[in-house]
Design a protein around this nucleic acid. Structure first.
Length: 716
DNA sequence: TGCTTCCGCCAC
DNA sequence: AAACGTGGCGGAAGCA
């Protein structure tokens, strides 16, 4: 074959009339006279090409060079029949076809190379034969294939099951759109159900939470989960995302097992899996998931054992998966009437405020920091009221400084507060209500680098009290919640073994008052609730845990920077073990590149070894904070696991967790003894060198919690 | 139109 | 030069 690039495409010369036309035609003529190589050089030399286009163009060129694709003959000549230049647009038009061809090639290769131990099951006899294998198994891998990732609206279209010892990976399609034979959906569910529900048969999955939710919708209660490769990977490397990766099975398998793996999109584009009509393709793709999940599990188990974290995984992360699922299923009843009511109220107030603000500031978008910044600092020159060098921001901190100098600022702050409440919470929540009338946020036990939970859709961990009032317990139930009192300072005390702090907690004294009295050498009476020394101590201890600098501390306490420095110095002199502990954390992080928290869980901080002082300094702050925050998160997780047991015994349900707070739905006729049992779990599950303390509340509406005394008095 | 990034702000 | 840790989310603005 003659390489296309070597062909001279055109020798024709244009003969146009008008001068402009002549110039244009001359350019076209020059282009049309190019070889393909020259055309490519011209197209790719454009330095304004978007990165995405460049990537596509590179792929198209490579395929063209290899003779895999070529120009569409219809594109190669003009209407007049003259040869036409090869353009960027034409090259990009070739891309979808190339992608399709690549997909077809990849799929064909995958199908051709399907291992013998991948079984496509489409008959009852086939299913019998496969299920017979399971009699000898202690563990299986499972993975449901679905139409999408929405646990409320998508549905199962097939099951992947791997028999571990037999090393057989089966795909059982049930709802593919195909002419090919497949087993009846409900029949398959019924046949698999006993295995899914057998707690003695171990289960392995990647992101099991999703599959378990999907199975639950079909009336199947999964039991015996022994391994989740997504959760385990987060214990092995909590920095995957920060390092540009993700926790998808394919990515992990490619990265850690070096098994090349196409992503779903690579192979099937945006097609739902049920639309894959060729079941041999479905088998090759789906059964491989079971296969590689098992391989990844074996890899992870060995590594976790090596770094002594296998028991942490088994005792904390794995059992808490079930709690996560229970909380997500529970959800909250959302009071939509109240949401509408509050929303209207806020909207009305905001209308009024913005009308007044228009008088103050003229026509400016109040939601635009850029426009406000221009107005305040360029037109009104309000920056003259700020300290020199102050960052010209329009955030609350800055606006408060400007408030005395412009009558509109105070109102703007009010606008900010109310529009945040309306936009992020009150208006947003009703749209998240599912068919059952509840909002079901997702909780991710592996959503943060420290091991805390993350939550989204909605984020149940950042609801202001104002919005919490919209969240109601299901009928017949109440929200029973416990809040670890000073959870993180207690961990600070536990780790530092600082005598004064230990003593304060052990004797039940108020930590901040006691410490303030000691540090400032003041009588305890002057350090009571609401006193300035107590407030300083509280902020100061928090500052120590978060690693804040003197500048920020000075701002927070409204003192000079020197006073802030003196405070910190005094703090460290009075509590030398705190200082020593922080130093040792930093030394450890610098030496090993990670720190250890409760149960040996690691926070890897490779940047602790950085030569960039700023980067390293940040890692130093993270080191101490991660130990405290992460250990507290483990205490919360362990407590959740125990609370779930209590819930099962009492017929209650796990509902939510907000870092140091855990809530359950209890029957509304709960007794004071029930509450004591509940509290005891918080106090006794993870014991420290100091006693735990918990504030327990009961309510029908979140955010309207009452103390136990109040609650039972009300009833009496 | 959909995407990404930035700013700002809610929670613990 | 940078100095508060962990998150999620909404609106504006820039870009393809």
């Amino acid at each position: 074959m003659v390489p296309i690039a070597k062909l001279r495409l055109n020798i024709d010369k244009p003969t146009s009339a008008a001068p402009n036309e002549r110039v244009k035609s001359a350019v076209q003529a020059r282009k049309a006279a190019e070889t393909i190589d020259e055309a490519w050089a011209r197209i790719l030399s454009n330095d304004k090409l978007a990165a995405a286009d460049r990537r596509k163009l590179d792929e198209v060129k490579a395929a063209m060079d290899a003779g895999v694709i070529g120009r569409d003959p219809r594109d190669a000549v003009t209407k007049a029949g003259r040869p036409k230049a090869f353009s960027k647009a034409e090259a990009l038009r070739l891309y979808p076809g190339l992608l399709e061809k690549k997909r077809a090639d990849m799929l064909a290769k995958m199908v051709a190379e399907t291992p013998d131990n991948y079984w496509l099951i489409t008959t009852k006899a086939g299913l019998d034969e496969f299920l017979a294998l399971l009699a000898a198994e202690d563990e299986i891998v499972f993975d449901v294939e679905t139409t999408g990732v929405d646990i409320f609206n998508d549905y199962i279209v097939g099951h992947v099951i791997s028999a571990v010892k037999a090393d057989v990976h089966a795909y059982i399609p049930t709802k593919h759109v195909t002419e090919a034979a497949q087993l009846d959906h409900d029949y398959v569910t019924e046949r698999l159900k006993p295995y899914y529900e057998d707690g003695q048969l171990g289960k392995i999955a990647h992101n099991a939470k999703f599959d378990i939710h999907m199975l639950a919708r079909e009336g199947v209660t999964l039991r015996g989960l022994t391994w989740d490769t997504q959760v385990a990977m987060h214990v092995l490397n909590e920095n995957e995302r920060a390092q540009g990766g993700n926790y998808q099975l394919k990515s992990l398998v490619t990265k850690y097992l070096k098994i090349p793996s196409y992503t779903y999109g690579d192979l099937f584009g945006s097609k739902g899996f049920h639309e894959v009509g060729d079941l041999t393709q479905a088998l090759a793709y789906a059964a491989k998931d079971g296969d590689v999940t098992l391989k990844l599990r074996n890899f992870q188990k060995a590594h976790l054992e090596k770094i002594d974290l296998l028991s942490y995984y088994n005792e904390v992360e794995n059992p808490v998966i079930d709690v996560t699922i229970e909380m997500e299923s529970a959800g909250f009843v959302l009071d939509r009437e109240k949401a509408a009511e509050l929303g209207d109220e806020l909207r009305q107030e905001l209308d009024e405020i913005s009308a007044n603000l228009t008088e103050e500031f003229g026509d400016v978008n109040l939601n635009s920091p850029a426009q406000l910044s221009k107005l305040f600092f360029e037109e009104l020159k309000l920056d003259r009221h700020l300290p020199k060098g102050y960052k010209l921001s329009t955030d609350v901190k800055t606006l408060k400084l400007l408030a005395p100098h412009h009558s509109g600022i105070k109102l703007l702050l009010e606008y900010r507060e109310k529009s945040k409440l309306l936009g992020t919470y009150i208006d947003a929540l009703p749209s998240l209500v599912q068919a059952d009338g509840r909002v079901h946020g997702t909780f991710q036990q592996d959503g943060t680098v420290t091991g805390r939970y993350a939550s989204k859709s909605p984020n149940l961990q950042n609801q202001p009290v104002y919005a919490r009032k919209l969240f109601v317990a299901p009928p017949g139930q109440v929200i029973l919640s416990g809040d670890f009192s000073q959870q993180e300072p207690r961990f600070l005390t536990h780790f530092t073994q600082e005598p004064v702090l230990l003593d304060a907690y052990r004797s039940g004294k108020d930590l901040y008052s006691t410490a303030a009295s000691e540090l400032f050498k003041l009588p305890i009476e002057e350090c009571g609730d609401g006193s300035k020394p107590r407030k300083m101590m509280k902020t100061g201890i928090l500052a120590v845990m978060y690693g804040v600098g003197p500048k920020t501390l000075a701002e927070q306490l409204d003192i000079s920077e020197k006073e802030a420095r003196d405070f910190v110095e005094n703090f460290y002199e009075t509590y030398p073990r705190v200082k020593a502990w922080i130093d040792s954390n930093e030394q450890f992080a610098k030496k090993y590149g990670y720190v250890k928290m409760l149960y040996g869980r690691k926070r890897r901080l490779p940047e602790a070894k950085s030569r960039d002082r700023f980067v390293q300094f940040r890692a130093m702050r993270q080191a101490t904070n991660a130990i405290i925050q992460g250990s507290a998160a483990i205490q919360t997780k362990k407590t959740m696991i125990e609370l779930q047991r209590l819930c099962r015994a009492k017929g209650w349900q796990m509902a939510f967790s907000v870092h140091d707070e855990i809530g359950v739905y209890a029957n509304e006729d709960l007794t004071i003894e029930d509450v004591r049992d509940f509290e005891a779990v918080f106090l006794n599950t993870v014991k420290l060198s100091v006693p735990n303390k918990t504030d327990v509340e009961v309510s029908r509406r979140w955010g309207e919690g009452r103390s136990i005394e109040e609650w039972f008095n009300l009833l009496a």
